[in-house]
């Protein structure tokens, strides 16, 4: 392994090696996460609903997702006649690619970040906005009314929920005094470090709600609302086009929970086990909460969703932010 890395470093240089190893690792992470999450979600759903979930393939049905992927690969990709071909084909890629960039910014442990950027948090959210483009491109180019309705809903929902998401994250940034994700983790660990969940419980609540809405997950899955809009923005997608949207959804879930773990749960901080393991455990704990919400609540109506964001979450997160700033100033003056 080390010899291989040395050879790579010889030919590509240090930066090139990081890039290559990082992307291979991230590709692995994305695939394994999606495979695991689909299985995990089905199992949790089964548990909630008093049934077994997938059991047929592999022990406890663990190979079910793999076979689903094979099935999706084997399906014919139908491109309907009325679609805008170029945009239609590009849309899943645009929706998915930012995920790779976002994953490369996450701190999996104290020093385990693929690209350590000074304003990492800001960059992660910025890439999140790009993925929305992909969803809307898919919806618009489908030339289908259900898809269009889903796309319009997706855009207004994502814009509305980006604000509370950012504002709740900003409260943490004020506490940590940095936008660098690594430094935010560092502020929570060490001698008298305290996880920000203790200082910012309100922000965590807002963050989780907004993150669920950002990833279009139930009870905020309004852009795809299958009982109203058939499949929403990906109504016209079949086979791999659909699979890539699907993959993107599960990857974004991992990302928002990863940021949540970084901001509020101290990233890779924890006793005994190594940092990355703690990080993954925390991420999957948050993912478990998201999955549980999906199988418990009915879907909100569109206007109710907007009211929740504009009339409740945004004012609350603003108050939280101002209160945090005020307290920090008092502490600073006092000391």
């Amino acid at each position: 392994m080390t010899a291989l890395l040395d050879t790579l470093e010889g030919t590509l240089g240090g930066w090139g090696t990081t890039l290559l190893v990082g992307f291979v690792a991230l590709a692995g992470l994305i695939t394994v996460n999606a495979m695991f999450m689909v299985w995990f979600e089905r199992k949790v759903a089964g548990w909630v609903q008093g049934r077994l979930g997938p059991m047929e393939h592999g022990p406890q049905g663990t190979l079910q997702t793999l076979l689903d992927v094979v099935k999706l690969l084997g399906k014919e990709s139908i491109i309907p006649a009325q679609v805008d071909r170029k945009v239609f084909l590009l849309a899943p890629v645009v929706a998915f690619l930012p995920a790779l960039a976002m994953l490369s910014l996450l701190p999996y442990d104290n020093n385990l970040t693929m690209t350590d950027v000074e304003s990492g948090l800001l960059l992660v959210f910025a890439f999140g906005g790009v993925s929305l483009m992909g969803i809307f491109m898919g919806a618009w180019s489908s030339n289908n009314k259900f898809a269009l309705l889903g796309g319009m809903r997706a855009v207004s929902q994502n814009i509305a929920y980006e604000l509370p998401l950012l504002l709740s994250a900003m409260a943490v940034v004020l506490c940590a005094g940095s936008l660098n994700l690594g430094e935010i983790v560092a502020a929570q660990t060490g001698e008298n470090g305290l996880w920000f969940i203790v200082m910012q419980p309100v922000a965590l609540g807002i963050y989780l709600i907004a993150a669920t809405a950002e990833t279009n997950r139930a009870p905020f899955d309004i852009p795809e609302a299958e009982s109203e809009l058939v499949a929403g923005f990906h109504t016209e997608y079949t086979g791999m086009g659909f699979a890539v949207f699907f993959l993107a959804e599960y990857t974004y879930m991992f990302i928002v929970c990863g940021i949540g773990a970084t901001l509020f749960l101290g990233g890779g901080d924890g006793p005994l086990l190594p940092g990355p393991v703690w990080f993954i455990l925390k991420v999957y704990f948050l993912l478990f909460l998201m999955v549980m919400a999906r199988w418990t609540y009915p879907r909100l109506r569109f206007d109710q969703l907007m009211n929740l964001a504009w009339k409740f979450l945004i004012p609350l997160s603003l108050i939280n932010l101002l209160a945090t700033a005020a307290v920090l100033k008092f502490v600073e003056v006092g000391s």
Binding site: A45, Q49, A225, W295, Y297, P298
Partner: peptide, 10 residues
Amino acid sequence: DLGAFTPFLL
């Protein structure tokens, strides 16, 4: 129809 799947199965 309201988007909750679990009551259906229960």
